[in-house]
């Protein structure tokens, strides 16, 4: 079984006093193990909603989610979720922040703590474990947040505009770092972004959502045919602008 996630016919209607909002409609796609999938779409089309449904944080009104062929209801321990902000707890030091998920799940075992320390060492954060979040740069904080998510060993990682709060240069660097971490740890990833370049530079496939109610309009395969692919050298590849133009047009159709 090479397939890790199946999103089947997902629909979502939000209810509130003002009325109801159909955020998603008939969303279908599958993700293979180890794959990196980007999702782009106009703002308000339901991208965050889709990730929240996959993570089990938001109830769906239609459809089913299967992870490793098992139907999932509610929050799944196989899914890790990283939000736009790093959401580090300012009152805990870095080590304690990275152990937060393990602590919540009651699996703060010796082995797991060792694993986290390994990750911190591997990704150059070990010297900072006794520091507090406010003493770290934005890029480092984002890496700490990633390690906190990876600590509980998720099979699928969801990133919701996880880099958009960073300034441009930091963002390119963090994308580079995080991409290499995800590839090394062989994590299946679904990343939502509003940045077409970012989507292309990391993804094996890009899903384009239509405007609300969001549904999948197009799926683009991205293949740079490179040995050691990284986001930066993708950006320098001649194929990059071709993909960019294609997706730009795809998104533009809805804008008018």
């Amino acid at each position: 079984m090479n397939e890790i996630l199946e999103v089947k016919n997902i629909g979502k209607k939000y209810q509130n006093k003002a009325g109801e909002v159909q955020a998603l409609k008939n969303v279908n796609f599958r993700v293979k193990k180890g794959e990196f999938v980007s999702i782009i779409g106009p703002s308000g089309c339901g991208k965050s909603t889709l990730l929240s449904i996959i993570a089990g944080l938001e109830e769906k009104t239609e459809g089913e989610i299967y992870i490793e062929s098992e139907r999932v209801e509610g929050i799944s321990s196989k899914v890790g979720y990283m939000l736009q902000r790093d959401c580090l707890l300012e009152w805990r030091n870095i080590l304690s922040n990275t152990l937060f998920g393990l602590e919540i799940k009651g699996i703060k075992t010796k082995e797991n703590i060792e694993y986290v320390k390994e990750l911190l060492k591997k990704y150059n954060l070990y010297d900072f474990i006794n520091k507090y979040p406010s003493e770290l740069s934005g890029g480092m904080r984002q890496r700490v947040a990633l390690i906190r998510t990876l600590a509980v060993k998720p099979k699928i990682l969801l990133l919701d505009e996880a880099f958009s709060a960073l300034d441009y240069q930091t963002r390119i660097m963090v994308t580079e770092d995080i991409y290499s971490i995800l590839r090394k740890e062989d994590i299946t990833t679904i990343m939502v972004t509003h940045d077409i370049s970012e989507a292309i530079s990391m993804a094996d496939r890009v899903l384009v959502l239509s405007k609300r109610p969001g549904t999948i309009k197009e799926i683009h395969k991205i293949d740079f045919e490179m040995e050691n692919r990284t986001p930066i050298n993708c950006r320098q590849n001649p194929k990059f602008s071709k993909y960019f133009d294609c997706l730009w047009k795809e998104l533009g159709v809805d804008e008018k």
Partner: peptide, 26 residues
């Protein structure tokens, strides 16, 4: 902070954990 609460929920935290580990210290 709603985002921090959402982050804690992604680890499937209980309401009591939310109270003691997020809401009170925050």
């Amino acid at each position: 902070d709603k985002e921090i609460i959402k982050m804690a929920r992604t680890f499937n935290c209980t309401k009591l954990q939310l109270l003691t580990k997020i809401v009170i210290p925050a």
